[in-house]
Simulated scan of single mutants.
Amino acid sequence: MLVAAAVCPAPPLLVPAVAAGAAAELDALRGDCRRALAAVAAAGPDRLVVVGAGAAAVTHHGRGAAGSFRGFGIPLTVRLPAAGPGGGTADAGPTAEPLPAPSAVAAWLLADAGWDAAPVTAVSVPDDLPAASCLELGRELAAGSARTALLVVGSGSHCRTLKAPGYLDERGEPFDDSVARSLAAADHEALAALDRELAAAVGADGAAPWQVLAGAAGRRESTAPLGGALLHHTAPYGVGYLVAAWS
């Protein structure tokens, strides 16, 4: 059962070593990611699953799975927390595949927040995983009696300004605003109905992970609904950065 979720963006610039001289510019964003993870920890989950895009196929990563920022010129390796409270050992899990960049950023966020509330695994999905498959994966993750929490990582439009990575697309800001409203209201039905063609056009790599969250939250229809809080909604580099907590 899904008991909580944190939604965070996944730009490598969140990692100070990657951001270098611009590290301080994202301090507020990092702080809001910590707040979202604190809200998830307060829900008392039995397990946390990181959900991010960037994989060629749906890939499950076990406890202690590693990712690297060498592709960004930084010799930094990060790992999913190997154990929750009470210690334990790392579990390489179903695959030894390295974490894609979004999930590596998530691993850094968890370390930055000092996460030790529950064991952590990850699922990486293709950017173009169909909505129906995303929703089904979310339902699978939330199945059973375990108190499950998600850390969903991905960014909004990368077309918010002329200097943005995707140049300017006037559809980008309204798209991000609609996602922000859905996250603020914990509206899983609105996330499930996201226009994936538009999401791809404006470069929103969070679309597939958000729809996995929608599928997981949809299983709660017979129980008390989750409440949402939007903690961050900016586009400092022409890319939409959204942080939310559901609990």
Results as ranks from 00 to 15, higher is better:
residue 114 G to F: 14
residue 107 A to D: 00
residue 77 T to C: 04
residue 77 T to H: 03
residue 117 A to K: 04
residue 99 L to A: 05
residue 116 D to P: 00
residue 84 G to W: 09
residue 104 A to C: 09
residue 97 E to P: 00
residue 98 P to A: 14
residue 82 A to L: 09
residue 135 L to D: 04
residue 84 G to P: 02
residue 91 D to G: 02
residue 102 P to Q: 12
residue 123 V to A: 04
residue 122 A to F: 06
residue 116 D to E: 15
residue 91 D to K: 04
residue 118 A to I: 10
residue 117 A to L: 05
residue 93 G to N: 11
residue 120 V to W: 12
residue 82 A to C: 15
residue 88 G to D: 10
residue 93 G to K: 11
residue 89 T to L: 15
residue 135 L to K: 08
residue 136 E to D: 15
residue 129 L to M: 08
residue 121 T to P: 00
residue 78 V to H: 00
residue 94 P to T: 11
residue 119 P to T: 15
residue 129 L to H: 06
residue 91 D to N: 08
residue 110 L to R: 05
residue 110 L to D: 00
residue 119 P to G: 13
residue 118 A to N: 06
residue 82 A to K: 10
residue 122 A to G: 01
residue 101 A to S: 13
residue 99 L to H: 01
residue 94 P to W: 11
residue 87 G to W: 04
residue 111 A to F: 10
residue 86 G to T: 08
residue 81 P to F: 11
residue 135 L to A: 07
residue 134 C to R: 06
residue 129 L to K: 09
residue 124 S to T: 13
residue 101 A to P: 01
residue 85 P to W: 12
residue 76 L to H: 08
residue 105 V to E: 07
residue 120 V to I: 13
residue 102 P to S: 10
residue 100 P to L: 11
residue 81 P to N: 14
residue 98 P to F: 12
residue 100 P to T: 10
residue 85 P to I: 08
residue 87 G to C: 11
residue 105 V to H: 03
residue 76 L to K: 14
residue 107 A to I: 07
residue 130 P to G: 10
residue 105 V to F: 08
residue 113 A to C: 07
residue 103 S to K: 02
residue 136 E to N: 14
residue 95 T to I: 00
residue 106 A to R: 01
residue 83 A to L: 10
residue 88 G to N: 14
residue 74 I to A: 13
residue 116 D to F: 00
residue 105 V to W: 02
residue 91 D to E: 14
residue 110 L to P: 02
residue 89 T to H: 14
residue 124 S to V: 05
residue 122 A to W: 02
residue 98 P to C: 11
residue 110 L to Q: 04
residue 79 R to H: 15
residue 102 P to E: 10
residue 104 A to R: 02
residue 74 I to D: 11
residue 97 E to T: 15
residue 126 P to D: 01
residue 118 A to C: 10
residue 84 G to T: 02
residue 85 P to Q: 12
residue 125 V to F: 04
residue 96 A to M: 05
residue 78 V to F: 00
residue 113 A to N: 01
residue 104 A to F: 01
residue 136 E to S: 14
residue 116 D to V: 12
residue 78 V to E: 12
residue 108 W to S: 04
residue 119 P to C: 14
residue 90 A to E: 10
residue 104 A to P: 03
residue 104 A to S: 15
residue 96 A to T: 15
residue 96 A to Q: 15
residue 126 P to C: 03
residue 125 V to G: 03
residue 85 P to G: 10
residue 105 V to M: 09
residue 101 A to E: 07
residue 79 R to D: 02
residue 100 P to Q: 06
residue 83 A to R: 01
residue 133 S to Q: 13
residue 109 L to T: 05
residue 99 L to F: 08
residue 123 V to E: 05
residue 117 A to C: 05
residue 81 P to H: 14
residue 79 R to F: 09
residue 109 L to V: 02
residue 105 V to S: 03
residue 85 P to Y: 11
residue 74 I to L: 13
residue 84 G to N: 09
residue 135 L to Q: 06
residue 129 L to N: 00
residue 119 P to N: 14
residue 126 P to F: 01
residue 115 W to Q: 03
residue 110 L to Y: 01
residue 103 S to V: 12
